[in-house]
């Protein structure tokens, strides 16, 4: 049986990490009108971080440590 407790701890860590990534001041680092391949940096950053967060959650949940 997978270690549910460790999954829980990893998800809490993901939550806290996400809270940092999607708030001031980290956001302000990307909020300066620059762009990446023509896409505004802040827009690219948020979607990339969002996708990364989902990928991490999926990984933690679907691949529990034995």
């Amino acid at each position: 049986m997978p270690d549910r407790k460790l999954i829980g701890e990893r998800l809490i860590a993901t939550f806290l990490g996400g809270c940092l990534l999607f708030n001031y001041p980290v956001l302000s680092l990307f909020d300066r009108g620059a762009d990446l391949f023509g896409i505004p940096l802040i827009y690219a950053y948020i979607f990339a971080a969002w996708a990364g967060l989902i990928a991490i959650m999926a990984f933690f949940i679907e691949h529990p440590i034995e």
């Binding site: 998800l11 939550f15 996400g18 969002w50 967060l53 959650m57």
Partner: peptide
């Protein structure tokens, strides 16, 4: 949409 994403990480509990 970011709020629910974060909360779903806690949805486990």
């Amino acid at each position: 949409y970011l709020g629910p994403t974060l909360i779903m990480a806690l949805g486990w509990f």
